[in-house]
Amino acid sequence: MEKNKKLLLIIIGIILSLLIFILPIIFLVRVTISGVRNIASNNSKTITNSEEIEKKVEVSQNEAYVSAFSTEEVKDTKELSHIKIWVNANLFHMDAITSYTVKNIKVEGYRKGKVAIVKPGHVSNTLSSLNYIWGPYEDEMKSAEIKDSGRTITFNVVDVAHYYDEVSKVGSAMPTWGIFLKELGEFNYRKIMDSENLFESVNVLKYASVEPNDVNLSISFDVEMVFEDGTKWVKRFSAELDGAQIVENNSYSVKLSY
C-alpha cells in the first residue's frame, strides 16, 4: 500500500513537472501564431478611404518609368548594370496638407541585384541636367552612390515646392523618387568594343548576362497625406514589371494600379 502511494506521488510529480514545462511553450506558440496572423492580415488589408476623404484627392497620373543603365567602376574594363524605376503618382488636392509620406515600399520577385530606394536630395527642381540620383550630370557616378533611403520616404510640405524633396501644400503633389535594382551583373566595355567594334547602351543588361526572369518585378507602396483638419488620405499603388520588356527594350512605362 505504501509503495502504491509513493508511486502515485511520483506520477503526480512527473505530470506537474511536465505541465509546468509544457504550458509556457503552448502559450508562446499560440502568441506567435496569433502574431503571424495579425501581420498577414495587416499586409493583405485593403486600404480604403471614406467617401468624403476620397473626394479630396484626384489621382491625375499614375505611372512608373523603367530603364536600364550602367556605371563605370573601372575605366574601360568594368561596368555594372542597374535598373531604375521612376515612380510618378500625381495627386491633385485643393485642401491644404501638412505631411506627405511614401511608406510600405515593397519590391519582390527579382532574382539578381540589390534594392535601393532613393529619395531626391535638396536640389532645385529647375535643374534638369542631373544624373540618376540627382547629382551633377558631369560627374562620373558609381554604384556605391546609389544608397538606400529605407522603406519610408517623407517629403517636406511647403507653400510652393522649389526643390525635389518638397511638395506644395495645395495643388499638384507629384514628388519624384526612385526604386533601383542595382548591381545586376558586370561587363567589360573594352572587350565588347574589341570584338564587335560597337557598343549599344540599350544592351547593358544583355552584356551583363541578365535574363528576363532575373528582373520580373512586383512593386507596391502606400502614399499617405494628412490634411490641416487632421484627416488622412491613404492609397496603395502597385505594378507588375515584365522582365522581358526591360531586357529587350531597355526601357518602358507601366501603369500603377490603385
Rank of each mutant, 00 (worst) to 15 (best):
I219Q: 03
L130P: 07
R111N: 15
T46W: 00
I179P: 03
K119I: 00
S251P: 04
E73L: 05
K75Q: 12
I179W: 02
E72Y: 03
L127N: 13
E54M: 03
A96Q: 14
S257E: 08
F227M: 07
F199S: 14
N90W: 10
D148P: 02
K147F: 01
T101E: 15
F187L: 03
I192F: 04
E196P: 00
N197K: 10
F69S: 08
M94W: 04
I105A: 02
D242E: 09
M193G: 05
K84G: 10
T152V: 14
N156M: 07
N42V: 12
I33Q: 09
S70M: 05
Y100V: 09
S17W: 08
H82C: 08
K255F: 01
A244L: 08
Y252R: 04
K45N: 10
E211I: 10
S128P: 00
L256W: 02
N4T: 04
M94S: 08
N250G: 15
T71G: 06
S60W: 03
K142D: 08
V170H: 09
E211W: 08
S34C: 02
I10N: 01
T154G: 02
N250D: 12
I33C: 04
A40H: 09
D159M: 00
V115A: 06
I10E: 04
N42R: 10
L80K: 14
M141T: 13
I10V: 15
A96D: 13
N43C: 04
A64K: 01
T71M: 05
Y207Q: 02
F21M: 03
G171S: 08
Y65G: 00
K84Y: 11
D95E: 15
K147W: 03
P212L: 05
D139Y: 12
K232M: 13
T98D: 15
N125Q: 08
G230R: 07
I105D: 02
G13R: 07
L198I: 06
D242Q: 06
T98I: 15
L184V: 12
R151L: 01
M225D: 08
M94P: 00
I246L: 11
N156A: 12
V158N: 08
K112W: 06
R37P: 02
L127C: 03
Y100Q: 10
E2A: 12
G243P: 07
L127G: 07
V158R: 01
N203Y: 06
I219E: 05
G178N: 13
N42L: 10
G185W: 06
W134Q: 05
D194S: 13
F92S: 12
N88H: 12
F21K: 01
V29Q: 05
P136W: 06
I192G: 03
F187P: 05
N156E: 15
P212A: 08
N125R: 15
Q245I: 00
G171C: 12
Y164G: 04
K119E: 07
S99Y: 11
N216T: 05
L256Y: 01
L91P: 01
Y100E: 08
I14A: 09
L9D: 04
V57K: 01
G171P: 08
L8M: 09
S257N: 13
D139M: 10
R236W: 03
Y189Q: 13
E54I: 00
W134F: 13
K191N: 11
V102G: 05
K84I: 13
N104Y: 09
S195M: 02
F221Q: 01
A208D: 07
E108M: 15
R30F: 07
M94Q: 14
Y252K: 01
I11G: 06
K45S: 14
Y252L: 03
T231P: 03
K5Q: 09
I219H: 01
N104K: 14
Y65F: 14
